[in-house]
């Protein structure tokens, strides 16, 4: 069974429909890139996948033993975070909270999990540093490490390279690629920058005026013919 299935889903706010009749499946090991114009409903779709936003119609189902709470999520940064006094370690550890239920304090195994997530992303040296003093690329790695504490299976990334310089952007793509290939993590990524994201992706979902879902190769053929590829 597929890891994630969207079946004729319609999304929108206050009765206004932004996306309609959206169907796609994500299998273990896939790297799905969601593209589309501003306001086409990419972030709304991601919130729906996370269970934060109810679809107007249709069903979103998880399979393969994945619960909705086990999806690792890398949100866009908020204003609150830019000025937040917290160390890298505190933030990464908070990724473990979803799995704990009522238990109030972190266990040794959770601390170990946080440590290995930081190790994987090369930010162990930053553990005691303050989040707001890090560079944009480092901050994204911290949030990615937190997401890794929450999931072993599926990562959702909402414009992970927004605001990063070219070098940090390339590093971020490489990092996600490594997680996808070596850790067999399934990745769903929203991206503006089609040209940079496509080489790593296995599937593309284009939402907006034209709906498209398929492999990257199909997307290339389909859209290059029409001359639409960005």
């Amino acid at each position: 069974m597929a890891l994630l299935t969207c079946d004729h889903v319609a999304l929108g706010y206050d009765g206004r429909e932004i996306v309609s009749d959206l169907s796609f499946t994500v299998n273990t090991g896939d790297y799905l890139c969601i593209v589309g114009e501003n306001g086409s409903g990419k972030t709304t779709l991601m919130k729906a996948l996370l269970g934060l936003h109810r679809p107007l119609r249709g069903r979103i189902e998880t399979g393969d033993g994945l619960r909705q709470q086990q999806i690792g999520y890398l949100p866009q940064q908020t204003d609150v975070q830019r000025d937040f006094p917290a160390t890298v370690k505190e933030i990464v550890l908070s990724g473990c909270l979803g799995r704990k239920g009522f238990h109030p304090f972190y266990t040794a195994s959770e601390k170990q999990l946080a440590h290995s997530a930081m190790h994987m992303l090369g930010i162990c040296g930053l553990a005691g540093r303050c989040y707001r003093e890090l560079s944009g690329g480092q901050q994204q790695r911290v949030l990615l490490a937190r997401a890794l504490c929450a999931t072993q299976k599926l990562l959702l990334l909402d414009e992970p390279v927004a605001g990063l310089d070219p070098k940090a952007t390339a590093e971020m793509y490489e990092l996600v690629h490594t997680l996808n290939k070596e850790k067999r993590l399934t990745v769903i990524m929203i991206s503006h920058d089609l040209a940079a994201a496509l080489p790593y992706a296995s599937h593309v979902l284009h939402i907006g005026e034209q709906l498209f879902f398929g492999s990257v190769d199909d997307y290339r053929t389909c859209f290059t013919k029409g001359g639409h590829l960005a």
Partner: peptide
Amino acid sequence: YNKIFSVTFDENFAAATGT
């Protein structure tokens, strides 16, 4: 304490991961 931290720092993430 830990949950208050998480909800304060990033409400969306906390909600998405089941808090």
